[in-house]
Computed example of a mutant assay.
Amino acid sequence: MAAYVFTERWHLPHAPDRVAAVLGDVEGYAAWWPQVRAVVALGPDAADVVARSTLPYELRLHLHARVREPDLLAVDVDGDLRGEARFALTPEAAVGGGPGCRVDYHQEVDLAGRPGRVPTPLVRLADPLLRWNHHRMMEGCRRGLLGCLAGPDAGPDAGPGAA
């Protein structure tokens, strides 16, 4: 198995409570996050998710909420990946004033399931490609989140700082 750590940092022109409300609603991810293909809620704290970024494979994940605080959303991940993922939210002023939010994403996972059947040396050779694919997935999250927070008439690139 290969261990991966992924991090992202975004600055969004929206208050942390609004960002937390959207990120905390995993069942709604497929409506605004293009790489999330399907979500099946299994209760208030668990869901099965199918995700696919740019590379031609789907990941089937089981997410279980571990922390649901106003400034921290954390899930345990099982399925094709095993580990944890979390969004930490910090209030900050938006560019031009008004409420804003710094989002720090952190994910630590091991390959399991179908991708985990690939021998480790091959996975290591593909490491830059897998990291690029994950970054594309998270860029889809950032853009979709901005569009969702901007309102129903806004596109995925709406809002200040969306580029």
Rank of each mutant, 00 (worst) to 15 (best):
T54G: 15
D76N: 06
T120P: 08
E139M: 12
G144F: 00
P56W: 02
T7K: 03
A21I: 00
G116E: 00
A21H: 00
P119K: 11
E27F: 03
E84G: 12
G83T: 02
V95Y: 12
A88Y: 10
D71L: 07
T54P: 07
P34S: 04
C148L: 13
R68S: 11
F87E: 07
E58T: 14
A150H: 03
D78K: 09
N133L: 03
A47R: 11
A65H: 11
P44N: 05
L129E: 02
P99I: 05
A31L: 06
A38H: 11
H64G: 15
E108A: 14
A3Q: 06
V39D: 01
R60Q: 14
F87R: 07
V50Y: 11
S53W: 08
Y105H: 06
R131W: 10
G100Q: 07
W33N: 04
A20M: 04
C141L: 15
A163T: 01
W33T: 01
M137A: 15
L130N: 03
R66V: 15
R117G: 09
L63C: 07
A38N: 10
D153W: 08
G28C: 10
L73A: 04
L12F: 01
R52P: 02
E58G: 10
A154M: 06
P115E: 00
W33F: 01
P16Y: 02
Y4K: 08
P119L: 11
V39A: 04
V123E: 14
L125N: 13
A88R: 14
R131C: 09
A150E: 02
D25F: 08
A2K: 15
R86S: 10
L61C: 12
H64S: 15
M1G: 06
L55A: 11
M137E: 14
G140Q: 13
C101Y: 12
V22C: 00
L125M: 14
G161C: 03
A15K: 13
P34M: 03
F87V: 09
F6G: 08
C101A: 10
A31K: 07
M137N: 15
R66F: 11
G43M: 00
P115W: 00
